[in-house]
Nucleic acid binder design. Structure first.
Length: 847
RNA sequence: GCGAGAGUGGCGGAACUGGCAGACGCGCUGGACUUAGGAUCCAGUGGGGAAACCUGUAGGGGUUCAACUCCCCUCUCUCGCACCA
């Protein structure tokens, strides 16, 4: 045994061993309880970053731990391999996206293996492989049959920089989620997935996601954005068309004093003569700072009370939501109130608060949006507004004036992308037959390899004659193939189902899927709270309705790990600086003082990234894994500290040198311990060992709090370091302690643990060993510290035998010299005893 | 504005169901070994005080024998939603 552990030697050695032993391979086996542990697969950018290391370290500890607990664990990994960076690289470096991607996959796979991650590579998925994306195409055809995929012309979000459309979910603050360019609206013919058909089910399902962080479920609910209300038709004076509005407040119908329609509303052009004014409103569309309107000169008739109300065109009314027209009730809607005040429109109160004083319409300073009783509302006056909502809506419906309606903010998912590097949409356009699906037998539609990248945007597929020119599957005349490809979120919406079957197995084998699904633990970043996670829930339901899977929810438990952050440095003039550039707090360019910026998510642009490769070279994989798990609980952001890594390394070394120094004692101890069935005398170290097993086990089981689990192991090591092995019995205890420590450490630092496992005389393959159990009796202390307080303040600590009765504890406390002193001359009013831990003596003033 | 989460030493973070605040690590201080230490090991480390002791979990109030923990108010930060009718 070497005096210092050499990770460069032992880590590759055990990686080779695990590969040979097929340590991470798994097979469906109905006789075993399964555990499906999954981390979000990466985009193969070429290099892993700290976020990956953290994500995958968390997943690997869970997978290894569950294996030791006897579960049949599925722990796969793959590549989200389609997407734009490959095309950008092609344009920039003249490399084919395919070559670029596969080379990146190869090098990243090496990096992951170097971390000792226990993946079953027999199930590896690479989404740009035709054997994978053919199923995207197959799902598309199935969804087409069910009316879940359809084509329509619409205004779409267009990113000028990426030269492609974006789904609503991919637009963040009016910018492209990937490159931040300002998104513009463009009219295009697109393919859509009808996710709205599942809106209600997806919403309801949010309440069953008990294993998810609540905020993710809330974000999805917000995104689906359900609101219940009614559509009501208002007549337009002197015209035959009706003005259809949507409202969630039918109870305020009697309070309507004007109407507003969106500038893009189809009636806007016909209702106003003043086109300039219309343009002004249009220009301010969606501007939140102020409300701008234009009176059309036309009036609508309130169907409930026949009142005549003016129609405005207003910038704050959105065409995308509801009907693009609203009824305005300034007394009970703050937005309408502000608009009414600005344009001097009447305000009519129809709900009176049951508390507080009456206010006249004129004296209102803001809209009353609370609960109350209806007034000025015809036969509904006197009713509670909460009840009138339903009653008026029902009345409107019965009178044929409108109908009860439910609206969702969720839009259908536009999947067409004008890009090359994606799944071809299996459609052929025929002059006669229209859009014709490619027959199933012709799948996959292969993405052609030989393409030229102009670099001017637009899909290079348009120039590939062999691809574009196709024959209509129906009528066999020459036709044109669809050149748009699918959004890459389609790829990631079902990859976890593909993992259930190995390479070479039938990809959608129902038995495999039934056995492994759902994912028991999914781990990934919060940034996918709506996008990927919502699409996956939608896809799982589609697959359920196709009879492929029985469950509706793909992910039983979700852990959203925090970001890896680091401090930043910034020069007021020259921007972000690398930490090593900042010497004695000055900017290397101008010499001015630099600001120590905030702790921010690691990113190249902020110059605060740490390269995992360099750290692995310096400290090894086990240290990296250990530190990233120790520095913070998984769901919280982690602040990277180089010195912290050093600490993790020292911890491992401390254990190593303990074994190195005490090896003979340990081996002797093993011999003795094996004679008595590994149950040596109950000494403080044995108690500590069992307490540690208990603590580590419960910390992992409860919320995966690895940081406290590691801290507990550190405590055990500290105790072992000062342990003296004098008798053989001590040696036996020491052996039991080190054995259990190494077992518990093995999911965290697997290479290190395998090596020490050998050194303490065990057989290779610690990963197969059962997780240790603790003995309840041993885990309890013989003596406990009894805290004695006087009036709630700590006065003394007594060492007493465990299981002391309350009466005895009280006696001992009162007889303690310090306590006698503190209570002298005072009246003891009350004594509170907390079993086995604390006595509080309540005393009054002097005697 | 609405919703969620958070605020604890010089730093990252502990603390079960109300019961010793600061586990564990980093950093720092002192010591040992050493030609040397950025290696390793040992000890100390919330603040104030020579000490007894006092004080301390964003701030203020309350409940309780006892509050980081429960209740009320205020402040700050992070995230999500936001003219969605």
């Amino acid at each position: 045994m070497k005096e210092r552990f050499d990770f460069n030697e032992i880590e590759p050695k055990w990686q080779k061993y695990w590969a040979e032993e097929a340590a991470a391979k798994s097979s469906a086996d109905a006789s075993k309880k399964k555990f499906y542990c999954l981390e979000m697969f990466p985009y193969p950018s070429g290099k892993i970053h700290m976020g990956h290391v953290r994500n995958y370290a968390i997943g690997d500890v869970i997978a290894r731990y569950k294996r030791m607990r006897g579960f049949n664990v599925l722990h796969p990994m793959g590549w989200d391999a389609f997407g734009m960076p490959a095309e950008n690289a092609a344009i920039k470096n003249k490399v084919h996206p395919s070559k670029w991607t596969y080379e990146n996959v190869a090098s990243m796979k090496q990096q992951l293996d170097r971390l000792g991650l226990s993946y079953d590579w027999d199930r590896e998925v690479t989404t740009c492989n035709p054997e994978y994306y053919r199923w995207n195409q197959w799902f598309f055809l199935k969804m087409l049959e069910k009316g879940l995929a359809y084509r329509k012309t619409s205004f779409v979000n267009w990113c000028p920089s990426c030269a492609t459309v974006l789904a609503n979910e991919q637009v963040v603050d009016n910018g492209c989620w990937r490159c931040d360019s300002v998104v513009v609206q463009k009219e295009l013919e697109q393919w859509f997935f009808r996710i709205t058909r599942y809106a209600e089910e997806l919403l309801q399902g949010c309440d069953d996601l008990s294993g998810w962080p609540e905020r993710v479920a809330v974000m999805q609910k917000n995104w689906i954005g359900k609101s219940e209300g009614a559509e009501v038709d208002f007549a337009i004076e002197g015209r035959s068309e009706k003005l259809k509005i949507f409202t969630t407040r039918p109870d305020t119908l009697f309070g309507v004093t004007f109407m507003c329609i969106a500038a893009a509303h189809p009636l806007a052009e016909t209702l106003t003569k003043d086109k300039t004014a219309l343009e002004v409103v249009k220009a301010k569309y969606g501007k939140e700072d102020d409300k701008v309107g234009h009176f059309t000169g036309q009036y609508a008739i309130n169907p409930l009370n026949n009142e005549r109300v003016p129609i405005y065109i207003a910038n704050f009314v959105l065409m995308e939501y509801g009907t693009g027209a609203i009824m305005s009730v300034p007394a009970h809607d703050q937005r309408d109130f502000e608009f009414a005040k600005k344009y001097g429109l009447p305000i009519k109160t129809v709900i009176q608060s049951t508390v507080g004083s009456r206010q006249s319409d004129e004296s209102l300073t803001e809209a009353f949006e609370g609960e109350g009783v209806l007034i000025n509302s015809g036969k509904f006056s006197g009713a509670k507004n909460s009840e009138a909502k339903g009653a008026i809506a029902a009345f409107v419906e019965a009178q044929g004036l409108g109908k009860k309606t439910i609206k969702y903010k969720l839009r259908d998912w536009g999947i067409s992308r004008q890009r090359y590097w994606g799944t071809p949409i299996p459609i052929i356009y025929c002059e006669k037959c229209g859009a014709v699906p490619v027959p199933e037998k012709d799948l996959p539609v292969i993405l052609p390899e030989a393409v030229q990248f102009s670099g001017t945007g637009g899909s290079p597929l348009l120039d590939i004659k062999d691809f574009v020119n196709a024959e209509c599957p129906k009528c066999k005349v020459p036709a044109r193939r669809e050149t748009d490809t699918m959004d890459t979120f389609v790829d990631s919406s079902w990859y976890f189902i593909r993992y259930c079957s190995k390479k070479g197995e039938e990809p959608l084998n129902k038995n495999n899927i039934a056995y492994w699904m759902p994912v028991d633990q999914y781990i990934g970043g919060i940034e996918h709270a709506v996008l990927h996670l919502l699409y996956s829930r939608f896809f799982t339901r589609c697959l359920r309705d196709l009879g492929i899977i029985t469950q509706s929810e793909p992910f039983g438990n979700l852990l959203t790990q925090g970001m890896v952050c680091k401090e930043t440095w910034k020069c007021p003039e020259h921007g972000w600086l690398f930490p090593e550039e900042v010497s004695n707090g000055q900017c290397p360019q101008c010499g001015n003082a630099v600001d120590k910026g905030r702790v921010e998510k690691m990113s190249k642009s902020k110059k605060n990234v740490i390269d995992p490769d360099a750290l692995i070279k310096r400290y090894g994989a086990d240290t990296m894994r250990l530190f990233s798990l120790f520095a913070a609980p998984p769901e919280r952001d982690l602040e990277w500290a180089d010195q912290g890594v050093e600490g993790a390394y020292r911890f491992l070394h401390k254990i190593w040198s303990l074994v190195f120094r005490c090896r003979q004692d340990i081996l002797k101890g093993k011999e003795i311990a094996s004679k008595n069935g590994y149950s040596p005398a109950v000494t403080p170290l044995l108690r500590k060992t069992h307490q540690t097993i208990k603590k580590v086990t419960t910390d992992i089981e409860k919320d995966y709090h690895f940081n406290t689990a590691i801290a507990a192991m550190m405590e055990l090591v500290n105790e072992m370091a000062s342990f003296k092995t004098e008798k053989d019995e001590d040696r036996a205890v020491f052996f039991v302690a080190i054995k259990n420590l190494v077992l518990m450490l093995s999911p965290f630092a697997p290479h290190f643990s395998e090596e020490l496992w050998l050194e303490i005389g065990e057989l290779p393959g610690i990963y197969k060993h059962a997780w240790p159990e603790w003995n309840k009796e041993f885990a309890e202390d013989e003596d406990v510290e009894l805290v004695v307080q006087v009036n709630g303040k700590l006065k003394a600590k007594l060492l007493v035998p465990a299981g002391l009765s309350d009466e005895e504890a009280k006696d001992r406390a009162l007889n303690d010299a310090k306590i006698k002193e503190a209570t002298e001359g005072k009246t003891i009013k009350k004594v509170i005893v907390v079993k086995g831990s604390l006595v509080n003596i309540v005393v009054g003033g002097g005697a």
